[in-house]
Design a protein around this nucleic acid. Structure first.
Lengths: 137, 137
DNA sequence: CCTAAGGTTGACGTTAACGTAAAGGTATAA
DNA sequence: TTATACCTTTACGTTAACGTCAACCTTAGG
């Protein structure tokens, strides 16, 4: 596993599967959906450092509730080093849009965390009172 | 719409659908999955303030990438005012666990936001240089 | 009375994201 | 050389979360 050739690390499909807790099936599926495009050594897939970074992006995206289609767009966004001004501007807009979306999502998470903290405190208070009741009886 | 009776507001299914940008089908589906259980006026559903709060929870949960099954558990968590100590402790553990999960999720979001900001800046820099190039030529 | 706008319950269709075999190639260790 | 551990493609199965009819009430307005 993890054959190091030519100073650039390579990973097998199961290397990545283990590292990111995915099945090989899932990884091949991502390739099918054009999220990955690894080299081949004969028939076998060889993943580069860059591929690994993509997998990381995919996993993170999924954790945050994005669909593979959305993640696909984001990857294209990240990797298409546009050079023409109109495309650069469009790229910038998409970046900002996605950032704003994430910021709103963060807002909701923080709100939920606050509510959970409140509930935790109430719970602890009740537990304490029950504890006192017991000591008294 | 929004019939106010007995000082407690009631909503029709399409009231809620419009407010939360859902279809009535989706709302009925949530009921099917035991996330909602509205009163009936004859055959028609009447949603209370509490039901509306639940819908809000559902929508928020979905935005954060939770499945309806997970959301179901959370709702039960919130509404089952346990009174026995062992159950209260279990309740507390579940709350904490969920909070930790959300905090980790927030961590990932913040990381992503940072990366997006970097990309935005790079993009702006490139745009500026292109602008200067133009002015010079 | 009739129509239009909502509401209801089935029940089958659809999409995403894989799971799960089946059938076979390849390379290395005993 | 044979077994073991990986890898491959092809293809059908599955689950979640609804979409989309169909066929049917009912209630307020013209």
């Amino acid at each position: 596993m993890n054959a190091v050739t030519n100073m650039t690390p390579q990973y097998s499909i199961s290397d990545l599967a283990k590292e990111f807790d995915l099945t090989t099936r899932a990884i091949r599926f991502y390739e099918d959906r054009a999220l990955l495009d690894p080299e081949r050594q004969g028939t076998k897939r060889l993943y580069s450092r860059k591929d690994r970074a993509r997998v990381k992006l995919i996993v993170r995206g999924k954790k945050l509730g994005f669909s593979l289609a959305e993640i696909h767009d984001l990857i294209e966004l990240y990797e298409n080093a546009a050079d023409e001004v109109p495309q650069l501007e469009r790229y910038y807009d998409k970046l900002s849009e996605h950032r704003r979306k994430l910021e709103s999502q963060r807002q909701e998470i923080e709100q939920t965390i606050i509510e959970l903290r409140v509930a935790e405190h109430e719970c602890l208070a009740t537990l304490r009172s029950k504890g006192i009741d017991r000591e008294r009886s």
